[in-house]
Structure formats: C-alpha cells, structure tokens
Amino acid sequence: MAQYLILIYEDETQYEKGGPELWAEIGQAHARFAQQVGENGAQILGGEALTPTGTATSIRSDVVTDGPFAETKEQLGGFYLIEAKDLDHALTIGKLCPARFGGVEVRPVMDTSGMGE
C-alpha cells in the first residue's frame, strides 16, 4: 500500500454564494465519500477542509504577505490523505471525491523511510 494526497481545488466563490443548504449537501457528499473509500478497499488517513484563501498568509524569505501563495482560478480548499494499492486504486478514490466546483489532484506521498541512511 502507498499513500496519496488528494488535493481538492475548487472555485471558492461558489461556496461563498451558497447558503446553509449547500453546506449541508457538501457535508453529506463527504460523509458518503468517506464510506465509499472503505468500500473500495482504501483508507482515509486524514483530511481537512481549509478556510478560504482570504484568510491565507504567505511567507517568502521571511517576507510576510497577505493572501495565498499563488493566485489561481481554483483554490486549494481541502485535502485527504489516503492509503491505496497503486495509482489506479488512488485514482478510483480520487474520482469519488466531491469537488463539484473544480476537481482534485492526486499526488503520491514521497517515501522518506530510506533517506539519510
């Protein structure tokens, strides 16, 4: 098994526009996703939703600036750390991950256990 990070990129303004009904719907979608991950033989090791990029602060060479690291059309809004057999397995999970206002990026987690020997 290997670990993959599923990064959820979405147009965050859509969430600002949506009311409590939208949030309830999204919450349900993620609960369903968590269940599907198990049914598909993978495992969620962690995951969080992030507050909008308006709350982000970036630091480059000690210089602190207001805002996200890069201005993009879709913003990183949450992530899951999962364990899967291989990339095909991870992509199957990635396809199930709710991201109606954008999409997800699947990144293998680097194995550092053999480093520095």
Partner: peptide, 10 residues
Amino acid sequence: AAARIPYRIP
C-alpha cells in the same frame, strides 16, 4: 515508479 502506475491489464 513514484506514483505506482500499475503494471497490469486494466
């Protein structure tokens, strides 16, 4: 290698 693209028939 890094992303573990499987060596298998779909």
